[in-house]
């Protein structure tokens, strides 16, 4: 357990820096606003206790919110997906469960498995995020399409990052 702390603290900081100074700065369109920082939540080990998932994702969301001037929106969406992450992992678990000592990564379970797992979490997160931001069901179709396009982008960048920098 303890040996994970420095590694995941670093991941936490890198996720925030990349999100705040790269992805938030690229203001290209409403359809380009990926929530890359979800990578942190996705990669946490299987054994992570639920309180850890919830609290780290709350803090992560709040920091992202603070930089984006959107009080609470990212925090709410991220806490929700942190809450349902164990259920989603159950849904995708192999027949005899996850092997002890592994974490949800491409190197252990393959890119198809990782993509499916990422996609489900990211889509739920993005739908929540953009509906909370709009705070109305007017323009619902636009909101849904913005959420879906951004989900795909988020998945793309998260999986890409797995091949570039967070390999182990």
């Amino acid at each position: 357990m303890i040996k994970w702390i420095p590694k995941y603290s670093l991941l936490f900081i890198v996720c925030i820096l990349l999100q705040v100074f790269i992805f938030n700065e690229m203001q290209i369109s409403r359809y380009f606003n990926p929530s890359f920082y979800l990578l942190f939540l996705l990669l946490l080990p299987f054994e992570s206790p639920r309180w850890l998932l919830l609290i780290t994702s709350f803090v992560l969301g709040l920091i992202i919110d603070a930089y984006a001037n959107t009080p609470g929106i990212n925090a709410a969406a991220t806490v929700f997906v942190a809450f349902i992450r164990p259920e989603i992992l159950n849904l995708f678990s192999p027949r005899d469960g996850f092997e002890p000592g592994t974490s949800p990564r491409i190197s252990y379970y393959g890119v198809t498995w990782f993509f499916k797992y990422t996609l489900v979490i990211v889509v739920i997160h993005q739908l929540l995020l953009f509906f909370l931001e709009a705070f109305t069901f007017r323009f619902a179709l636009t909101t849904i399409s913005v959420a879906l396009v951004n989900s795909l982008l988020t998945c793309f960048f998260i999986i890409l990052s797995q091949y570039i920098m967070f390999r182990k």
Binding site: W51, F58, G61, P71, G72, A75, A76, V79, F83
Partner: peptide, 30 residues
């Protein structure tokens, strides 16, 4: 059920933050 309670507390805080920004002079967070 501590996870459920913790979830409700954190989510409640986040939602409270979102709602509070609807008051014009109340953007304390920002």
């Amino acid at each position: 059920y501590y996870a459920v309670f913790l979830f409700l507390i954190l989510e409640g805080t986040a939602i409270a933050l979102i709602v509070s920004q609807n008051h014009y002079h109340n953007a304390v967070f920002i």
